[in-house]
Design a protein around this nucleic acid. Structure first.
Lengths: 207, 207
DNA sequence: TTGCGAAGTAGACATCTGTATACTTCCATC
DNA sequence: GATGGAAGTATACAGATGTCTACTTCGCAA
């Protein structure tokens, strides 16, 4: 992915700014964009064929950040409990530092444009795969089969993503959200350890 | 909530139709709406002050359905495993039968209008509370404290909601989605049963 | 220095939007 | 049957939007 420059960059950044203050990528107008970027409306056409192509470029721009963010997670934590705590802390801080990218991702993941939706899904799944493989490589939860780890990773990535909006917007709830997320992850993995047991076997164990 | 009639109903239904075929509630125009409804643009003003008020009415219209849907769940299932299976089956069938309402809910839950977002959140939390209290009353998972049941219910409602889009749009994946959702719920509750145990205690139990 | 392509600008176009005012039709109540 | 309010329509207006064509400026390579 080549780095954006000049007017192209200005337009993309303008879009991120507008989206953060309650807009949706799909609803942005080309004149609105140019106005926010301080450019002539027609400059838009020098860089993008139409608004769809623009949307994809914005996603690409964001993807860079997000990917490198998730990748940094590899450097962290030893035990599985410790790992989930540190990971969650890190991820939410990342979202807090990149509110625009986060907002775009959340909005468009269920947004009206199928094109953008598919693109985002693919990217989230890639991140989930990376996360899962990391967990497997480090044998953080060796009692759970790989396929299940992948499944839980996909769920977790999505869960975190849509909690991220609240995390950004409601400072007072940040600690709660973080704790809930940790519990979410721990329960998923711990519950998965019991996957092969029947209801009554579990009751036996706990009594 | 009084039943809608005449042009008011036509406009709301037009909105649902438009949203289903890839639009977002917030992005609908009043002329577009009137055109789809087969009415004169100005008729809109006979019923709604502006587009915000219209959005809220659409949400209210949907809320009726959703609430009665969730409420029917009370009639179901005995054991907790059976309950989660039946509940998930029921809920997804409900979403499938109400694609427009589902799409609106998912879109606007993270959409650009804070007003609609808050309204939807309140409604989801109400549903989650109802679900939790039902679980508690029936003592389906008595090993888990009430507050945790509420927390898991909130998570589950949201998880199901955003999986619902895929469920509607990708028929081939429906069975998978349903099974994943059941596993999600079971793992949450089973994991929650282990909340008070340490990592090493769990390993001891399972060995 | 010149030349050329990319980036940016200016102005114009038809079309769409939200809204206002004034008019007509419908239906229930007296 | 007359009357009045609610629902729906017709027309008009200013402003915004996407897009087109033509023009200017910039930066770099020959």
């Amino acid at each position: 992915m080549k780095v954006l420059t000049g007017g192209k960059l200005k337009l993309v950044q303008a879009a991120l700014r507008l989206i953060t203050e309650s807009r949706s990528l799909t609803s942005l107008g080309l004149r609105e964009l140019a106005r926010e970027a301080g450019l002539n409306p027609n400059t838009f056409y020098r860089h993008f064929r139409n608004l769809d192509e623009f949307g994809l470029q914005v996603l690409g721009y964001i993807a860079e950040d997000m990917k490198s963010g998730v990748r940094e997670l590899r450097r962290m934590a030893e035990s599985s409990e410790q790992a989930s705590h540190d990971t969650v802390t890190f991820v939410y801080h990342y979202f807090l530092a990149n509110p625009a990218a986060t907002t775009v991702a959340v909005r468009e993941l269920h947004g009206p444009s199928p094109l953008l939706r598919r693109a985002l899904e693919a990217q989230l799944d890639a991140s989930a795969r990376e996360m899962a493989e990391d967990i497997i490589d480090r044998q953080l939860v060796s009692a759970v089969p790989p396929e299940t780890i992948h499944e839980i990773s996909r769920m977790t990535i999505r869960y975190i993503l849509f909690r991220a909006m609240d995390y950004i917007e409601k400072p007072a709830q940040r600690e709660t959200i973080q704790q809930e997320t940790e519990r979410f992850i721990n329960r998923q993995f711990r519950g998965a350890m019991l996957d092969r047991l029947s209801q009554s076997e579990i009751e036996g164990l706990l009594s």
